[in-house]
Write a protein that binds this DNA or RNA. Structure first.
Lengths: 266, 266
DNA sequence: GAGCAAAATTGACGATCATCAACGACGGTC
DNA sequence: GACCGTCGTTGATGATCGTCAATTTTGCTC
């Protein structure tokens, strides 16, 4: 019924995940029965200052799991079975249709809660979530999250703010889709990815290990993968970015940003 | 600083607003000091089952106002000063940049609450709201809505569900932007507008009075207004829709829907 | 109704894109 | 190592789009 993109089965060579430059990802010292540190510190998580009883409830109702590249966390159309909290790695939120179309709508990072929308509306998942590379994700089952929400109004408020943040992100995306050229949309996307996945090189340039395929890149820009290939080619000849597989090197992020800054001063 | 689109100054010839076919809009018998019926009935509003004290608080902190076509309800960049609830008419939610670009992101109808995002995040408005045609809107000031939220957790939950609904709407939009052609995007938009603004004619065809200009239509589709003009021309020659100013007549809505149904069976 | 500004249409042209097809590269399986 | 499916790239071609410009239409003010 639903297509699994890039799903190549579990790779059990985990127990670690890459800490990317600029990312907040941290190794999580797994100790069953104790609260996972990553899920609480840094106020990057929605669960960081629960009262002791709620915290205990969370600890008992939470299951930590590692996902291999391409593994599906939850699939579009499935009934909701609780929420997930990204602890490490990168997760892609994807929407599919019955014609084989696939659009990567957003990326989720450590601290982000996913699957909360279908939980709160008590409905099936409207999107799929899939690990982009080795990923660690906590699952909080349906009854636990329900109990937590009932006893902690602040948690609901945090979901509300998360939802609003995602909505404003979606509005920005819609605005760019309507006003920018495909090239500028790709440049913008690269700049966002540099912020999340970029590492600084000794010569001042910055490099990214893209978490997504060219096809997904194309879906995020709103065009076909062949077109993305050609735009990448133009970026190469213009010398503003160098692509080698999923590795991208940007000689001057400022020069790349200037390309869209002249159009979007705000 | 911010451009007012279509703003031609207030038209004081109000006191009524058009009841469009298929729309839920109803005339609101204005009586100061009493609860506005439209804001409570039909569970289309976020305020429909407050307790008596909250209801009294709402009544005293609410101000009803009529807006003329093009009038701005709140402007992008302004500080939030409470929330608005659409009572009658149609409101456009718009995003602008400093280059004169304008994108109509969504339409708000009677029962919809707008401006709640910047209230809940205590920030400036990220979008503008503008009356598309004669409109009636209630304004609930900052302190009133704060008091209501503090005493009615259910109200916050309703905002949460509203936000989630808008987010899923935005995701659908993003998906269509990435997968549909401009023609199909316009067809889809027409079908949505038929559902909201359409009226059935005696011969089985349906007509719409478009609430938006061609430029706004173009921004919603993600293209230029000249292109929209040409696509409309093609729809005319294909006989699937007839345009005369802002009035559109669709001989067979089913035939129009079939154009995208064959591509989006889901 | 005259006048005006914005909206809408139409034409022409170059740029960009979608599609189909062919091919090499890569990763995983057996 | 052979096989296979997917991904990525490149080419060719027709369709579509963006831009500039000219013109008409519309809606509003006076």
């Amino acid at each position: 019924m639903f297509i699994q993109f890039g799903a190549t089965g579990p790779k059990e060579r985990l127990g670690w995940y890459q800490v990317e430059g600029g990312s907040m990802a941290q190794a999580c010292t797994k100790q069953e029965g104790q609260a996972c540190v990553v899920c609480h510190v840094g106020r990057r998580s929605d669960w960081h200052d629960l009262d002791p009883t709620a915290s205990a409830l969370l600890t008992s109702g939470r299951r930590r799991r590692e996902y291999g590249s391409g593994e599906v966390v939850f699939a579009q159309g499935e009934r909701n079975d609780g929420v997930h909290c990204v602890s490490g790695g990168t997760v892609g939120i994807r929407k599919l249709d019955g014609n084989g179309n696939s659009v990567l709508l957003e990326l989720a990072y450590p601290g982000d809660t996913i699957g909360y929308r279908s939980f709160l509306t008590d409905s099936e998942h409207k999107t799929s979530a899939e690990a982009l590379g080795p990923t660690v994700i906590c699952h909080i089952d349906h009854s636990t999250i329900a109990a937590l929400l009932a006893g902690n109004p602040a948690l609901g408020l945090r979901f509300l703010k998360r939802s609003i943040g995602e909505l404003e992100h979606a509005h920005d995306m819609m605005f760019r889709q309507a006003t920018l050229s495909n090239r500028h949309k790709l440049v913008h996307l690269l700049l966002v990815l540099v912020g999340r996945h970029g590492r600084r090189n000794s010569n001042g340039s910055q490099s990214i290990d893209l978490p997504v395929s060219r096809r997904d890149l194309a879906s995020m820009v709103g065009t076909r993968h062949e077109t993305i290939s050609r735009i990448i080619g133009r970026l190469e000849t213009d010398g503003v970015a160098h692509f080698s597989g999923r590795q991208v090197t940007i000689p001057s992020v400022e020069a790349l940003a200037a390309e869209i800054d002249c159009l979007i001063p705000a």
